[in-house]
Amino acid sequence: MGHLFDPIIIIDQIINGLTIGGIYALIALGYTLVYGILFMINFAHGEIYMFGSFGGYAALTYFVNTGFAEKHVVISVIAAFVVAMIISSALGALLERIAYRPLRHAPRLAPLISAIGASIFLQNVMMLIIKARMQVYPDVIPESFIEIGKISISYFQIFIILSSVLLMVGLYLFIQKSKIGKAMRAVAENKEAAALMGIDVNRIILITFVIGSALAAAAGVMVGMYYTQINHMMGFIPGIKAFTAAVLGGIGNVAGAMLGGYFLGIVEALGVLVMPAEYKDVIAFSLLVLVLVFRPTGILGEVVSERI
């Protein structure tokens, strides 16, 4: 067992954990933003992530087939992200308008059930589109890695870690500094008071859904490019893991979702060292249970999670 605690291996595992953790964090932000404002869990969020991933897939495949990707790799990748974010944002906004807004004043179980229904519906829509078969992202970026001493990091991992951090910093600044961000915080604190101050609450809620969906889409494209295989059920497990991450950090708390995502990714990766690898998911969900029992408000919790 001695080798397992070799610092090199631990650093390697932390890098693995940060990679998947960044993805969990990006999805978790969508849960937490919506919960912060509406006090509801958007269980269709995993499907928004899945649609984003397929949007990026369609764009990249198109660029590869037309030969455009060969000459302009960077533009193709950026375009794939943009396409994915547009598709997911539109879907998120649509979902809010159709599935949640009519139920805004309904008992709180109603929007939850509506979300689960939307999730099943979206999975089946994608299943019909792709004929229920696994799709494989084209290889656009050649796979290469750098070795620092004995530690090897692939460019992909660096790319995922950096871009997820960048997106989160951007989001944080947006919420703290921009006018819309200020309005979002106001709506989260008190909808009626915010409305009295002249804030269009419905518009802010819509924007919240759009932002959360765009972040999930980015995560979807990253997952597609890094793990290559996508299918119509791909949103389910990451959706639950990201939900776990959001609860871990304190649902409703933006910094908490980021922290929870990275924490979950790293714990999963390090847990594999001391336990059989098949328990990877067990680690994540045991954490969820433990947090809910002993600290339901999460690590940084501020919103009381009794709402749901």
Partner: peptide, 21 residues
């Protein structure tokens, strides 16, 4: 001798564990 889960897409943790062997 390790098990993985069908449908999972990230096997880097278990492979990193095997690497030093």
């Amino acid at each position: 001798l390790e098990g993985i889960t069908r449908g999972d897409k990230d096997f880097s943790p278990v492979l990193t564990k095997i690497k030093p062997l």
